[in-house]
Amino acid sequence: MELIFKKPESLTDTITHYCPGCTHGVIHRIVAEVLDELGLRERAVGVAPVGCSVLAYNYFYCDFLEAAHGRAPAFATGLKRANPNLIVFTYQGDGDLASIGGNEILHAANRGEKFTTIFVNNAVYGMTGGQMAPTTLPGQVTTTTPFGRKVDDVGYPIRVAELLATLRTPSYIARTSVHNSEGIIATKKAMRKAFSYQKENVCFSLVEVLSTCPTNWGIPPKQAAEWVGEHMVPYYPLGEFKTPEKVH
């Protein structure tokens, strides 16, 4: 019998600790499939963040480091500069990348470091129990915005993909979503491009993936997926914001 579907070699058999309805698992799988398909697993080194995906190394079957909170782009810079043959990727959440690690991602992108960042945006701090993130939507209730995010007090959510796309240094910057099949297919396509650019030593690449957090949003998984489409996508438009071919 012909085998037509299997677990990617770049994933382990470990059962994940992610909550029901969380899309980290989907994103992990997409990254693993891309590593498999491009033949990169044996050269890959992942850098885990601090956040829900801190234990990502339990699920990927490749070398892994665990970074300090927000510093994954600096870790990745050191790794890649030390051994340019590696395929280095950071996997970071919104608190990690857009808040405490804002400076590290900005400068790594601006230097054009040739690694890939998977930026998982679920509009909330997950692991610490649902506090406001830099990406929390206006009016969104979190444990530290009990009356909803007030933009006149704490500003508007940061659109990371758009922000990084303003940099003059060539890079690949895209935003996708995994709340439906169409989004999953688009995410895979963007990830493939991101890793291909790294493989060809072209540029820094980042894919921002809109993701769910049913637990901290306080809604069931199906509703959480719908919430992404109804509330996140209008504020965080999907698409490619920058490609190395296009001179800005």
Partner: peptide, 21 residues
């Protein structure tokens, strides 16, 4: 490599050390 801060510097050293150099 001139980094953006000492915070970044020390973590770059972490990555480089992990690469074995």
């Amino acid at each position: 490599l001139q980094m953006e801060s000492e915070v970044a510097v020390i973590n770059t050293l972490f990555g480089a050390a992990a690469a074995g150099i």
